[in-house]
Design a protein around this nucleic acid. Structure first.
Lengths: 221, 221
DNA sequence: AAGGTTAGATACGCTTGCGTAGCTAATCGA
DNA sequence: TCGATTAGCTACGCAAGCGTATCTAACCTT
């Protein structure tokens, strides 16, 4: 009699259909995170997905098409809505959501693509066309827009520059340190950069300039 | 008699010594800009420099060592000092200097390295050790520090977050658009993000919140 | 002009990856 | 169980790149 290993139910040796495709999607996201767009190969994806190249070529003509399909599949469809009674808290939460996205495989993959954007403009364009319906806006922009609609922020202050502050600072922190910002850092970004830009001044101890004049006006000496 | 082409002085067919090295440095910076760190090859560098691989291997054991030497050679030693009588103008100028660095071959190469930092941590570490003596600080931080020393800005407001605002927004603009920010954009970054963060509020028309309460305090309903 | 040094050219065996062809094995549904 | 479908395996010729060895040509100084 054939003695099987200690497995209580028979196990299929091959994945089929959607099971296989999901494994391939996970593999390509991991590959692009580890090797970048330029390092993507069918060999590598197939090996990581523990499948044959032929199974890939039956469905996709190139690693890029495969990557775009994987990102399309993984793209979040919507973000949780902010409340209406805690601007600071909602901004911090929005940045926490951004960080959460940044550690997900799809977020990591998108960032890898954007990091090499000038080398693969066609891929970035396809990403916008086929995965991002439009520039939906930044995580913090959703919050800011919401509070402006509630009449609690001056809408004129929500400029393209101001919309970008939160994300820009988070990305820079990650680029400089190779670490994710902790909650204390996210709070500092909100308190020290975003809130002042929408008219809520930085908390400060009493201070006045030394009597040299107004620093925002050129000297007339 | 041997008729030469219309060249008035004889031309050497081979570069030697420092001439060759400078050509190789230019080639590796162009290669990393075009192909990324992962795409660097001795074959590619040699071809671009129009020299033989043997000439490279006689000096450098790997493309990475060559890249580090090239970046060391190209690293600017100092930045122009700011004046003391036009904070806004000096900040804008600092961002212009940042943009100028970003379009230089060495700046492009450094950004290509940082974009793949998690894939090549040893290279980034070597970059810090051998090219950047220390985190000298950002372009705008030099200006902010200077004006604080003059007593024109509250030094407590120049936090690590605030130091990063200018560069972070410029980098994000480039990442999102694949274009350099123009002067109008740089001025907007200064006026709408940096100056508010150091206590100089955004210019605004008269505006007041609708009577819903203070947006920075959680609701007690 | 001669000699020493350096640059460039060429070839090599090996590895990795490409995209394809052909075949067998596994899976599923009737 | 059988047949259709799909997954996986293997081999192939080609290309690019590696690092090395060997040789010739070019350049510079004495």
């Amino acid at each position: 009699m054939d003695e099987k290993p200690q497995v209580l139910t028979p196990r299929r040796s091959r994945r089929r259909g959607d099971d296989l495709v999901q494994a391939v999607y996970a593999a390509v996201l991991a590959e692009v995170a580890e090797l970048g767009v330029g390092g993507l190969t069918m060999e590598g994806i197939a090996k990581r997905a523990a499948t044959a190249k032929t199974s890939l070529y039956r469905r996709w003509p190139s690693p890029r098409e495969l990557l775009l399909d994987a990102l399309y599949e993984a793209h979040p469809q919507e973000l949780p809505s902010p409340g209406a009674d805690d601007l600071r808290g909602d901004l911090i939460q929005a940045l926490e959501q951004l960080v959460g996205w940044m550690v997900a495989p799809a977020g990591i993959a998108v960032m890898a693509v954007m990091a090499e954007r000038q080398r693969h403009p066609d891929l970035v364009e396809a990403l916008y066309d086929r995965v991002f319906d439009a520039r939906g806006g930044t995580f913090t922009y959703t919050v800011l827009r919401h509070y402006a609609a509630q009449g609690q922020i001056d809408p004129d202050l929500i400029t393209p520059v101001v919309r970008d502050i939160g994300e820009a600072l988070v990305f820079k922190h990650v680029t400089d340190t190779d670490e994710l910002p902790d909650d204390e850092k996210l709070a500092a970004i909100v308190d020290q950069a975003i809130l002042p830009a929408i008219g809520i001044p930085p908390a400060r101890k009493p201070w006045s300039p030394t009597p040299d004049g107004d620093p925002t006006q050129p000297s007339t000496n």
